[in-house]
Design a protein around this nucleic acid. Sequence first.
DNA 1: CGGCTGTTTCCTGATT
DNA 2: TAATCAGGAAACAGCC
Length: 262
Amino acid sequence: MVCQTLGQHLSNPRWPETIYKPVASVGQLSIKAEGIKSASNGAWNTTACDSYWTSVHPEYWTKRHVWEWLQFCCDQYKLDANCISFCHFNISGLQLCGMTQEEFMEAAGVCGEYLYFILQSIRSQGYSFFNDPDETKATLKDYADSSCLKTSGIKSQDCHSHSRTSLQSSHLWEFVRDLLLSPEENCGILEWEDREQGIFRVVKSEALAKMWGQRKKNDRMTYEKLSRALRYYYKTGILERVDRRLVYKFGKNAHGWQEDKL
DNA sequence: CGGCTGTTTCCTGATT
DNA sequence: TAATCAGGAAACAGCC
């Protein structure tokens, strides 16, 4: 897997609306911090509250914890996971803590700058980062007030051209694509039948539905329903029909799956 | 608030 | 017989 860099962003860090939507103004960042406050009153999303990584110092995080942290940041701060290069973050917490801000930006573009800041906040505040919403809010606002967050203007393509094996895709076909591209998450659920032509097979249909259901926080998802959604993609050219059971093919309007274009 | 997109849910019927 | 496929129809959620 080839990982692109975002060198062009390093000299001029800015926050595009498309990457961090709530940051249209400093005030709106505070609104996001309010979200943390309400969440900490008992409604933490599963990414944060069901795992013990929030109570462990980042240096002791496993790869899994790093991944959960990324998920948490994407959920909580509405970062676009498509900007984050998974291969750069397939590392332990110790390695994560050793990354420089520049390395974060190389791994996740402008989102990386924000991730870096969040990580440093967690490292300095420890467990209280997740339990002291006022502190968190103040810290985030301080950062929002800093110069790098005040401007915006990088076009969305700048972000999406950096798209890799994303951790959290909003669309079903992207979820399927990313599962195909990340063997560490795939677990044999999907496999390529013809890599060049984009033909793939659903090996474990129930597991795929369950995983998609988890992604959408819907425990009633079934392969029947998931496949109905996949069939809608025939209309839009995201997928093409293959007359074999559990076999699909990426269409002309699907992108990001070709090996030579990664 | 309305319109649009992308599902989700349910369904009937056909195929493997 | 069960699993899957093919779509129509309607509901629903999130976004603009």
